[in-house]
């Protein structure tokens, strides 16, 4: 793998390669270049993850012609697809080296151990939401219970914006979470649940379920479940499969491409599904 990366850098197939370098026994996100090609020897593949594609997006914004190599797990690839869809990166400017990946409803039967159920305290399990539950289990809560549990989780939020900042598919120049009219930027605690729901709605058709937000959250809010929920809706209602391809149009809650064409006259029986 290291030889491959070196040859890409040497031959100029890519201008930079984004991966992890072991520094003082810690894997650190690293930008390998031809100038310091010897650093590739310290490249490390470990469970450690960072949204490398987000760095790639920033680089491409500065230099649209840059060619980027990247170490990519399946979640990174899904993120790349989303970024292609949203015109933030071009597929022809990115090459990837594949690494093993994490389990997710978007990618069953994967072997990454990173997001294995770990330590969820009994109290959180009792009054909040166990981050490792399946979505169906969370959906099964009654109205009152669901409300209590979710609001318990949201109440903890310290509005650090970690979820947004780490998110590989958050690229907007102006973020609605900074929008005074929508969420109120000043006070802590944030305007709940609006703060989380605004972000959730923006994640529909965008979240690739990498779990980095949850990982970054200091308060352990089960964000993955929340975004799994909106993506499930995007799939069930709009037949939109997030991150599966770079060719699809951006997801819009307005639905498929909006047209003014009258549809062929068809007898309607009952409601449109």
């Amino acid at each position: 793998m290291k030889e491959q990366i070196k040859s890409w850098l040497e031959q100029g197939t890519v201008d930079v390669f984004l991966g992890y370098r072991e520094v003082d026994h810690h894997p650190i996100p690293w930008c390998f270049t031809q100038e310091a090609i010897e650093e590739v020897d310290d490249l490390v593949v470990s469970p450690a993850r960072y949204s490398l594609e987000k760095i790639a997006t920033h680089m491409a914004a500065e230099d649209p012609d840059i060619r980027i190599g990247m170490l990519a797990r399946d979640c990174n690839n899904r993120a790349l697809n989303v970024l292609y869809v949203w015109n933030q990166l071009r597929p022809e400017q990115v090459v990837t080296v594949e690494a093993n990946c994490c389990p997710s409803p978007l990618k069953e039967h994967a072997d990454c151990s990173y997001l294995e159920p770990g330590t969820v305290g009994a109290y959180k399990k009792a009054v909040g939401i166990d981050n490792h539950l399946r979505l169906e289990a969370v959906e099964a809560y009654g109205p009152e219970e669901g409300r209590n549990r979710w609001m318990y989780e949201f109440q903890k939020c310290i509005k650090c914006y970690g979820c947004r900042n780490i998110c590989p598919v958050c690229f907007c120049r102006e973020c609605s979470l900074d929008h005074d009219d929508l969420v109120g930027t000043g006070p802590l605690l944030p305007d709940i649940p609006i703060f989380h729901l605004v972000r959730a709605v923006h994640m529909a058709g965008r979240c690739i379920d990498c779990g980095l937000c949850e990982d970054a959250c200091p308060m352990d809010i089960p964000l993955r479940l929340l975004y799994q929920k909106v993506n499930r809706i995007a799939m069930d209602l709009f037949d939109y499969r997030t991150g599966t391809s770079g060719d699809q149009p951006p997801f819009s809650i307005l639905g498929d491409r909006v047209t003014l064409e009258p549809k062929p006259i068809q007898p309607v029986t009952g409601a449109e599904a």
Binding site: A61, S252, R257
Partner: peptide
């Protein structure tokens, strides 16, 4: 404020929006 994601171009029913390649 525009991030150049092209979502608006997709939804415009009048083909009134275009992408300025230079300014992105």
């Amino acid at each position: 404020l525009c991030s150049g994601c092209l979502a608006c171009i997709q939804v415009c029913p009048f083909n009134a929006i275009s992408f300025n390649e230079e300014k992105k």
